[in-house]
Simulated scan of single mutants.
Amino acid sequence: MWAIFASALLAALRQRIRLPLPVWRLVHTALAVMIVVGSVVHALLIDGTMETISKAALCVLVLAATVKVVADLRGRATRTR
């Protein structure tokens, strides 16, 4: 939960705190990955809402989408340098 607040605060205060863009991007991406992993763990721990296999499959898809987005962002960041 605190990672969500920290990520939002970091995004809102991006111009004011004057972090270099690569540092800001790294911290913001790390917080976003923490949020996704925490959400997946939380979803897997909840019982009774979904079948175990479908819940695990959805969590794997969410993690795969996150890995793809982070990889695309890394590729874009290295291409612009």
Results as ranks from 00 to 15, higher is better:
residue 46 I to V: 14
residue 20 P to R: 14
residue 6 A to H: 02
residue 9 L to P: 00
residue 78 T to E: 11
residue 6 A to P: 00
residue 78 T to F: 05
residue 24 W to F: 15
residue 17 I to H: 03
residue 53 I to A: 15
residue 36 V to C: 02
residue 66 T to F: 00
residue 4 I to E: 09
residue 13 L to K: 11
residue 56 A to W: 01
residue 72 D to L: 10
residue 31 L to C: 09
residue 75 G to I: 04
residue 11 A to E: 14
residue 6 A to Y: 03
residue 28 H to W: 11
residue 44 L to T: 02
residue 20 P to N: 12
residue 56 A to Y: 01
residue 80 T to V: 13
residue 38 G to I: 11
residue 70 V to I: 12
residue 48 G to N: 03
residue 36 V to S: 01
residue 3 A to Q: 08
residue 17 I to F: 08
residue 11 A to S: 12
residue 23 V to H: 07
residue 28 H to I: 13
residue 55 K to R: 08
residue 1 M to F: 09
residue 80 T to Q: 13
residue 7 S to I: 07
residue 46 I to R: 09
residue 39 S to N: 04
residue 54 S to I: 15
residue 38 G to P: 01
residue 33 V to M: 06
residue 44 L to C: 04
residue 29 T to S: 10
residue 48 G to A: 09
residue 40 V to E: 02
residue 48 G to P: 01
residue 70 V to G: 01
residue 24 W to T: 14
residue 30 A to T: 08
residue 63 L to A: 12
residue 71 A to G: 01
residue 53 I to V: 15
residue 3 A to N: 03
residue 72 D to A: 12
residue 6 A to C: 07
residue 37 V to M: 02
residue 51 E to M: 06
residue 60 V to G: 01
residue 10 L to I: 11
residue 42 H to I: 10
residue 44 L to I: 11
residue 43 A to P: 00
residue 57 A to D: 10
residue 34 M to V: 07
residue 28 H to C: 09
residue 60 V to C: 06
residue 39 S to G: 14
residue 39 S to Q: 05
residue 73 L to Y: 01
residue 33 V to A: 09
residue 23 V to T: 13
residue 29 T to Y: 00
residue 35 I to Q: 01
residue 5 F to A: 15
residue 12 A to V: 11
residue 73 L to E: 05
residue 72 D to E: 07
residue 76 R to V: 11
residue 21 L to F: 09
residue 58 L to F: 03
residue 24 W to S: 15
residue 75 G to S: 09
residue 45 L to V: 07
residue 18 R to D: 14
residue 75 G to K: 09
